[in-house]
Write a protein that binds this DNA or RNA. Sequence first.
DNA 1: TGGATGACCTACA
DNA 2: CTGTAGGCCATCC
Length: 107
Amino acid sequence: MRKKKAKQDFFDKVYRIVSKIPYGKVTTYGLIAEKCGIGSSARNVGWALNKAKNSNLPCHRVVNRNGELTGKLHFVDPDLMENLLKSEGISFVDDHVDLEKHLWKPK
DNA sequence: TGGATGACCTACA
DNA sequence: CTGTAGGCCATCC
């Protein structure tokens, strides 16, 4: 485990998928996890983003299964997440994203 | 090597 | 709706 060549596979996939989230769309940890081959462990997606938060990933477009912005507290500025999403035309219902309209499924 | 951590999910009271 | 509990799996130290 975590040998010389760590399984960066997982991280790489997450990175690639999140990078491809189109403008004005959002996706969920669960879907990403599934596409990364860890289907049962969506946590690691959040962990991966935690590592990637220093990158230029649109991690603000990643929400949990209910469309809630669970990760916004981990942003440099918690309000930035809502701000960005609203700026992209994302509809909010109460405090969560309208997945019906903006859910994007990874290829 | 092994315990601790985590931006989740589901189920149940 | 809120709180608790278990599971899941890769990485950190």
